[in-house]
Design a binder for these strands. Structure first.
Length: 571
DNA sequence: GGACTCCTGTCCTAGTGCTCCAAAGCACT
């Protein structure tokens, strides 16, 4: 999990080099390296420790490999500190403003002495920017607006919020469009989205654009053109609309779905084949060879269609070329949920209600896994209470034909790695999910030891929300992921992909790595009400982004096989 | 700064729209 820190430092270097107007290819090297490191599923600290060669990674040469090693060994990057010393600390933040790039930052700093957002705001309001090169009153007003927006809406939005907003917008636009779909990171099911991308075909484009820029809840209209427009919703989410012709729909959808890295890789491949890809189609010279559907476009590039969740340029194009694309797991393959809560702890509904809801979803089983006593605010159970609760689960199961309600618990992993309940009662459970709900900030070594110790308890079946992160709110715990996964594999413990859209834990990159290391995954909802069983869809999105197939996920198994799979190997 | 070819230098990841100011920056995937 240090990889993301390395990536962050490299991106900071790139920002500073960019502002200084240095060789753009050097800047790109740092950005490419940041992305390589971020997407790399192995912990680079572990790679280094095992004597691995970092220059084997694409775009990492001798120099950057040494810088990665420096960051891992010292926690710092001297080169970055040198750069920072040469420029005011507030400059990189200016790049976050809409309409401001490195050239403008340089201009504002050198010509107007601007070195922070506060400064820039003042300069703009005092009319000191309009005299600068290529700046006028409109640009100045744009800066003020960009700062207001930035202050109001820093950050990203959760996937579930994006999907909800997207559904409303699509409903509003459907009456004036022949076709309208959401693309972008939403279609790729990224865990968070920065904006919303809508693609439409309409026989009356100006009516469509009119409707779009006047959607209810629109706070401002940053751009409006015949084919491309943007609005910002009151909640801060930016929505981009692209209007295309019907015979361009496939190439436009491909382009607008991205990711950027996937698009660039495809276009490069096209160029090598003597083709040109744009949102308007795939062309050989003047001749259009594809564009109506995505399938056509990929076919023109001699590739099978690639599922949107994989389009991150993380090896999917190579896999497609070699016929190695995974048969991604589908929601329909899920046969049950292995983490859910009832009124016995902090759930909203009874065991019976949860069981029946599982039956309505066509599940063969559901595990009721209420909290253990350490989670006091959630009404966690002690041994005696859990014993009675397990009996209740059994009784409820008898009245719930068709669905097996599994006796379970979500037992807390205490700070020292012991579990919050005695083995004698854990033994009575069919599903033991072990999770961390406190002491999130232990030092790395201690945290690693803590989790590994918990996994060695012979009754634990699943490690719940393994990193403990909360999207946009809480950073993941720091531990040696590889070591934990290896311990889980050795102990026969599955790792959870918690499908709650606030968690999505494990995330796509880590889940993919876990599978590579031989781990089995359990995709659960952590439902606290029967309606929340629907959150399974988000867990499956993440599993798909992790390249998982049915066989990688234990709760695609029929009941008998699942029970066998949950049995810990005897040693 | 990397990769490749060659040993010192060259090229490097695509393509297009919008805005504001009149050629280029920035944005978008």
């Amino acid at each position: 999990m240090d990889n993301s820190r390395i990536a962050r430092l490299f991106n900071e270097v790139a920002d500073l080099l960019d502002i200084r107007g240095e060789n753009p290819f050097r800047v790109r090297s740092y950005r490419t390296a940041a992305r390589t490191v971020e997407d790399h599923s192995e912990d680079l600290a572990a790679v280094l420790r095992d004597g691995g060669d970092l220059t084997a990674l694409p775009g990492i040469g001798k120099d950057l490999a040494a810088k990665i090693a420096e960051i891992i060994e010292t926690g710092k990057l001297g080169f970055l500190d040198e750069l920072k010393a040469k420029l005011p600390p507030g400059l990189p933040e200016l790049l976050r403003l809409e309409g401001v790039g490195p050239k403008k930052v340089k201009l504002f700093f050198e010509e107007a002495g601007v070195d922070s957002i506060e400064n820039l705001d003042r300069a703009a309001r005092e009319g000191r920017l309009r005299g600068l090169d290529r700046m006028g009153e409109k640009s100045e007003a744009g800066i003020i607006r960009a700062i207001e927006n930035y202050r109001k809406h820093i950050g990203r939005f959760r996937l579930d919020d994006g999907l909800a907003a997207g559904a409303k917008i699509l409903d509003s636009l459907k009456p004036v469009a022949d076709r309208v779909v959401a693309a972008g990171s939403l279609r790729r099911r990224r865990e968070t989205i920065g904006d919303l991308d809508i693609l439409a075909v309409s026989s009356d484009p100006s009516a469509l654009t009119d409707r779009f820029v006047n959607l209810p809840g629109t706070a401002s209209v940053p751009a409006r053109g015949p084919t491309r427009s943007s609005i910002r919703l009151e909640g801060g989410l930016q929505v981009d609309l692209r209007v295309m012709e019907g015979d361009e729909f496939g190439s436009a959808l491909l382009y607008f779905t991205g990711s950027q890295a996937h698009n660039i890789a495809l276009r490069r491949r096209a160029r090598e084949m003597g083709l040109k890809v744009s949102e308007y189609g795939i062309f050989r010279g003047e001749e259009k060879v594809a564009g109506e559907t995505e399938e056509d476009c990929y076919r023109a590039l001699e590739l099978p269609w690639i599922p949107p969740e994989l389009r991150e340029n993380r090896g999917e194009i190579e896999a497609a070329e070699d016929g190695r694309l995974p048969r991604l797991i589908e929601l329909e393959a899920i046969r049950g949920d292995l983490q859910s809560h009832s009124t016995a702890s902090d759930g909203k509904e009874s065991i019976m209600e949860m069981g029946r809801a599982a039956g309505r979803r066509g599940y063969g089983y559901i595990a009721i896994t209420d909290h253990s006593r350490a989670v006091r605010v959630a009404g966690g159970l002690d041994e005696k209470q859990l014993a009675r609760h397990l009996e209740e689960i059994e009784r409820a199961g008898e009245k719930c034909p068709g669905v097996r309600i599994l006796k379970g618990v979500e037992v807390d992993i205490l700070a020292d790695g012991t579990l919050d309940l005695a083995d004698a009662i854990l033994r009575e459970c069919e599903v033991v999910v072990a999770s961390i709900h406190s002491s999130f900030r232990l030092p790395r070594k201690e945290m690693t030891r803590r989790i590994v110790r918990a996994l060695t308890n012979p009754h634990v079946n699943i490690l719940g929300h393994p990193t403990g992160r909360m999207l946009l709110r809480r950073e993941p715990c720091d531990f040696d992921f590889e070591e934990v996964v290896k311990a889980a594999v050795g102990e026969g413990v599955s790792l959870e992909i918690n499908g709650h859209p606030a968690r999505l834990d494990l995330n796509d990159v880590l889940a993919r790595r876990a599978r590579e290391l031989g781990a089995r995954l359990a995709v659960n909802t952590d439902a606290h009400s029967s309606a929340q069983l629907d959150l399974m869809t988000y867990g499956v999105f993440t599993a798909r982004r992790a390249w998982l197939e049915d066989r990688d996920v234990i709760n695609t198994l029929p009941l008998e096989e699942l029970l066998a799979a949950l049995n810990r190997p005897t040693r």
